[in-house]
């Protein structure tokens, strides 16, 4: 397509803007309501706070790990509205009023391990354990979206999580056993 011959499209017209009042919070803290593992938490966060540090330090949910703090390792994976995210790359104030699930919220109601967690143990998919909460949450999120994933879909779903011990094979096998149930 040559320059100057771009297709004409129906784009918004330039228009005047009426003054309005915007909800704003002081720079120091922002009140938020976090719905974590079915419990409501009313807390104040700073605008630069990462969701991972708020969950760990303010709410004591230390299952998730802050490994790389740049979205590489996946150890901080939690579900935000049932979708896996790197909690280290989510601003805590943006999680206001959203549903958050951490690894502490995956177990069965009676406190026993979920089938997915049990499969990790049965398959030897846990060694040092540092990556495990993130792996479990990435797999849990995958299975919520796609209950019968293929092996390649499992590998793709876990691609954002690094493990330095087990070599991934046992982790993929653990997820497969649950996917095949």
């Amino acid at each position: 397509m040559e320059k100057g011959k771009e297709p004409v499209m129906d784009c918004p017209e330039t228009r005047p803007i009426a003054p309005v009042v915007v909800r704003k919070s002081p720079a120091s803290t922002i009140p938020v309501v976090l719905h974590v593992n079915g419990q409501e938490h009313r807390i104040k966060v700073r605008r630069q706070d990462r969701l991972s540090s708020v969950l760990r330090d303010a709410l004591g949910l230390t299952g998730l790990k802050e490994g790389c703090l740049e979205g590489e390792c996946g150890a901080c994976t939690v579900l935000l509205d049932d979708m896996p995210v790197n909690a280290c790359l989510v601003l805590a104030f943006q999680a206001d009023a959203r549903k958050i699930t951490t690894v502490e919220g995956v177990e069965n109601a009676d406190g026993s391990l979920s089938p997915l967690q049990q499969a990790f143990l049965d398959r030897g998919a846990v060694q040092c354990g540092y990556c495990t909460p993130g792996m479990v949450m990435a797999a849990h999120g995958l299975l919520l979206q796609n209950p019968r994933p293929s092996e390649s879909e499992i590998r793709e779903g876990l691609g954002g999580n690094l493990c330095r011990c087990t070599g991934f094979q046992t982790i993929v096998e653990a997820v497969k056993t649950v996917a095949e149930l």
């Binding site: 309005v20 009042v21 909800r23 120091s28």
Partner: peptide, 17 residues
């Protein structure tokens, strides 16, 4: 002093912020 965070819900609110 109008610093911090804004969470506008309309384009007009973006401009106002």
């Amino acid at each position: 002093g109008r610093t911090g965070v804004a969470r506008p819900r309309t384009v007009d609110e973006v401009t106002a912020a």
